[in-house]
Design a protein around this nucleic acid. Structure first.
Length: 517
RNA sequence: GCGGGAGUAACUCAGUGGUAGAGUGUCAGCUUCCCAAGCUGAAGGUCGCGGGUUCAAAUCCCGUCUCCCGCUCCA
């Protein structure tokens, strides 16, 4: 059933215009998705709600919309260039891929034992090693003895084998070249003129880097850094007093080793981040405050708040910049997984940028007459993950009795603030001036900024079901009585109940409902 | 990256070497006064992509891309 749920959501997303695979007619691009007409509405609704609640409804947070491409030194200072670039190695015996710096250490030449999962694999490995490396080992059960460690000071963490591929650097940041001159031109000339003759290994690598390093730029792997880099400009231009926050929402890019779960982990994704600057010594209370605030925010739109929880990070899982971290997790169909991280980043980032840029990044408290580097609490949420979360939370099936027997009704119980279409207006039948009245009502709703939809296709029952499936909270129907007494019906998505209201009150009624939810 | 599964109409899927199908959906018209309605008609398919075998390939073989599940990895 749980596996089923993702299939159903993915299918509904495509069928109804929420999410399509990117470049589908060309075979699709891995991990890239497009938000269709309903998906873009839902994602914007979510991000607008975040902006409204994080920036517009408080005095102590301001916004920023920074460039996605920043000075490359930003990523050097933040630690992303080194920290996001790990030497990975593949074991040729058991196919394990691992980080060289985390593998078990051995002395060169030391005798090692290789242990496979079972006897069959051990036999196959024995033959493979003999054929590929010309080394004959002794097998005993699922163990192979007699292998010696090579030049590298580690073995495979899975099977203990010293037979592995070269170390390969995996840079998790997207790299590009700034400027219209393609560095490949100069590189090609250099190769033709023999500049690379005789070079190999690290020397070759360094020489190659020399041709691209002046124009190399990166797509940001997180939106956070711009808020540290622009901290001083923002604090001064807005005369902000600590504590205060800077918020930003937008795209980030990471070459994830593994992408998975539809839009959950993709290389291009959207974040909603806020950096809250506070006085050292007060960070713990703000850490708790933002944990509570953010958790409450997620639950506000949820049908099943019990599927949201906070998990405290163990010291061993903390990122290099963090002193503490809470994850807001949601129970996805595949299990609990991260939706937002609330981190205590200390003064790490500001100090690093001060150090690398040479500019002073501090705060002067005019009352206390003291100067310090602020501490930072960072609630960093996944906007695209939020979309998936609320799709999962809202998806609901129920059995209903109809004229042709039992039928399954699919309802997206989206919070009205998140629903792509707020209200559908429909003539019960296409005659007696009903379509005209319905269209006039849609116009009246449009004029108040409410995303309404006119629908006269098929029978009334199908229209209701269609709007249930895309999460439209209310349907307004013009019928015979409307022509006599000026009332229409308003139908509730979740209960399917209907009541009559005057058509002249319809717009105000919807506005009231949208505000009260 | 490894292992497993899958890719045929917008969706769900049938089709094991011989003329590409069903249900749902979509569109048009008629009908219909409230919950998958009825009737009539219509549109829609490079069978993921590329190559091979064959008189003949959705079907067999090879490669490749994409998605899903598990592991691994990752903030």
């Amino acid at each position: 059933m749980a596996d089923d749920l993702m299939q159903k959501i993915i299918s509904l997303c495509k069928r109804r215009g929420f999410v399509f695979q990117s470049s589908e007619i060309y075979g699709g691009l891995k991990s890239a998705y497009d938000y269709g007409p309903l998906g873009v509405e839902m994602k914007r609704n979510l991000m607008n709600a975040w902006w409204r609640d994080t920036v517009h409804s408080r005095e102590d947070v301001v916004g920023l919309d920074a460039s996605i491409i920043m000075h490359p030194k930003v990523w050097q200072a933040s630690g992303h260039l080194s920290g996001f670039s790990d030497p990975l190695v593949d074991c040729k015996v058991c196919k394990e891929r691992f980080r060289a710096d985390k593998a078990p250490a051995v002395e060169p030449g030391q005798e090692v034992t290789i242990e496979l999962a079972d006897k069959g694999r051990a036999k196959a490995a024995l033959t493979y090693i003999e054929e590929q490396f010309g080394v004959t080992l002794k097998r005993s059960g699922r163990q192979l003895n007699g292998a010696k460690a090579g030049d590298r000071p580690y073995v495979c963490p899975n099977c203990g084998s010293p037979f592995m591929s070269d170390e390969r650097n995996f840079n998790l940041m997207f790299r590009s070249f700034y400027g219209p001159v393609d560095p490949m031109g100069a590189l090609a000339s250099a190769i033709e003129s023999g500049e690379f003759n005789g070079l190999s290994g690290a020397d070759l690598r360094q020489k190659l880097d020399g041709f691209t390093k002046d124009s190399t730029v990166y797509l940001r792997p997180e939106t956070a850094q711009a808020m540290f880099v622009q901290y001083a400009n923002i604090q001064q231009s807005m005369s902000l007093k600590i504590p205060f926050g800077i918020a930003q929402a937008g795209k980030s890019f990471r070459n994830e080793i593994t992408v998975e779960h539809f839009i959950f982990r993709s290389c291009e994704f959207e974040q909603m981040e806020m950096e809250f600057f506070c006085e050292p010594g007060t960070e713990d209370e703000w850490f708790e405050y933002w944990k509570e605030t953010r958790m409450g925010w997620w639950k506000k739109f949820a049908n099943n708040p019990e599927n949201f929880r906070v998990r405290t990070h163990e010291a061993s899982e903390l990122a290099h910049y963090a002193k503490g971290c809470y994850d807001v997790e949601y129970r996805f169909p595949w299990g609990w997984d991260e939706l937002e991280g609330i981190a205590n980043r200390t003064d790490y980032d500001l100090k690093k940028h001060a150090e690398h840029s040479g500019s002073k990044i501090e705060y002067f408290d005019p009352v206390e007459r003291k100067r310090y580097t602020p501490y930072v609490i960072e609630p960093a949420a996944g906007a695209t993950r939020g979309v998936l979360t609320y799709l999962c939370d809202a998806y609901h099936e129920e059995q209903v009795e109809g004229p042709k027997g039992t039928d399954t009704r699919v309802v997206l119980k989206l919070h009205p603030q998140l629903a792509p279409v707020k209200v559908a207006v429909m003539p019960l039948v296409k005659k007696n001036g009903m379509p005209e009245k319905a269209r006039a009502l849609v116009d009246a709703l449009f004029r108040r900024g409410i995303n309404a939809s006119y629908d006269a296709q098929n029978a009334i029952g199908k229209r209701y079901r269609r709007h249930d499936e895309i999460g439209t909270p209310w349907c307004l129907t013009i019928d015979g009585e409307t022509l006599e007494d000026g009332t229409i019906t308003i139908r509730d998505r979740d209960t399917m109940e209907q009541r009559r209201i005057p058509i002249d009150d319809a717009v105000t009624e919807i506005e009231t409902l949208l505000r009260s939810e």
